[in-house]
Design a protein around this nucleic acid. Structure first.
Lengths: 212, 212
DNA sequence: GAGATTATGGCAGCCGCTGACACTCGACAA
DNA sequence: TTGTCGAGTGTCAGCGGCTGCCATAATCTC
């Protein structure tokens, strides 16, 4: 039962453990006393390192709060890139996001309990500073997804259609995510169905007239 | 030639002038030495007030950098709300944004020179912290636009179609805005045409298959 | 094991931001 | 005009996020 850890040096293993300890301690403290109510010194002390060391692992307090989000984003991007080239763009996005959800759940659990993460997610939506940083990252993810769609379809970078499609897709995912945070439970299956249902509304939403 | 100023008290006029002086000084300093290279103390000193007073006018350094953006956002929202109820949703958004552009140009010029604002706009795109705050505000604008569209169409808040439409629209506007910043000139007419052309791509972008 | 490399801690300091308090000056009535 | 009231301002002290610098301690390489 040799994992990757046993093959790497002691140094890297220690770094990895320190990093994960910081993420876990941070999320626990955030859950207890809120984001602004928690100082970096407290997080560092809880993980038993100096404040200076904290800033060697994370660019800032925001960064540690969004650490898990970053993982999720890279999972989604990878899943889209893995879709067969024959699929139409929207189908690829939809399939990727629906399929990779289980993997994401596991990836989260390997760092923090799912329930704790849900609390963090809600905190991100409610804290202006964190929401801003989160949206900026999502914009970056949109850029990458746009590039990937354009590549799949063999389109030049000037073609606006990939960007528009990704924007609509991303808007739907933001909305779905918001509702997931409200639910507070980790009901993955129900969430997947809701995601699919919302994505099916993209076509109708752009119809000329909804009243007919 | 009595303007609004002459009808309000001296006190309010002074406040207004101080606020605008802070915005103008801030933008000039940002243009000269960048966002991070400019301290709040410098801005306050340039506007001849204390640092403490600066923070009575603006919630933070971000806030003064995005002051003009906020004006633009409220213009757009107002323009959408003013569209006749008979127009289909996307038409209303498109018409509003195309039509209100001149008014926005004038509103900007009344506070800072247009050329200086263009520099500020580029700075926002390039400075992570500012971009994040900007995107958060755009998300709020999306919320308001979504509500307005749902209201116009008489739809319940759960219907995802307004949100999706606004997301696609907003994605297009972000992209157009990005290119406007790159151009660096204040060519409003060309910009309006480009906006219209991009918005016309929303339909095609959602087609099942682009290759046909 | 010696030396090179890398992670860590402690310190000093800048900057964004806030609360508390005193002061100035415009607003408004007597 | 004058006196009072309150809004706007400046000053000061202080917290918390964040960084550069240097010394120390841990790991890696040979």
């Amino acid at each position: 039962m040799h994992t990757i850890e046993s093959t790497t040096g002691l140094r890297e293993r220690k770094k990895r453990r320190t990093r994960e300890a910081l993420v876990r301690c941070a999320q626990e403290l955030f859950a207890l006393q809120g984001y602004e109510g928690t100082t970096v010194d407290e997080i560092a002390a809880a993980a038993d390192v100096s404040q200076r060391t904290f800033f060697r692992y994370f660019a800032g307090k925001e960064d540690v709060a969004l650490a898990v989000q970053r993982m999720i984003e890279s999972h989604i991007l990878a899943a889209v890139c893995a879709r067969p080239a024959a699929e139409p763009p929207l189908t690829a996005l939809r399939s990727a996001v629906v399929e990779c959800w289980d993997g994401i759940g596991e990836a989260i659990e390997s760092v923090v309990p799912l329930e704790l993460y849900v609390r963090t997610y809600r905190m991100i939506q409610e804290t202006p500073q964190l929401l801003a940083a989160h949206l900026r990252r999502l914009a970056e993810l949109e850029d990458r997804l746009t590039d990937e769609i354009a590549r799949r379809e063999g389109l030049p970078a000037e073609d606006p259609r990939p960007r528009i499609l990704v924007a609509a897709f991303s808007g739907v995912m933001r909305e779905v995510g918001k509702r997931w945070g409200d639910l507070l439970d980790g009901d993955m299956e129900g969430f997947r169905q809701r995601t699919a249902a919302y994505l099916d509304q993209i076509g109708p939403a752009l119809a000329e007239n909804w009243r007919s």
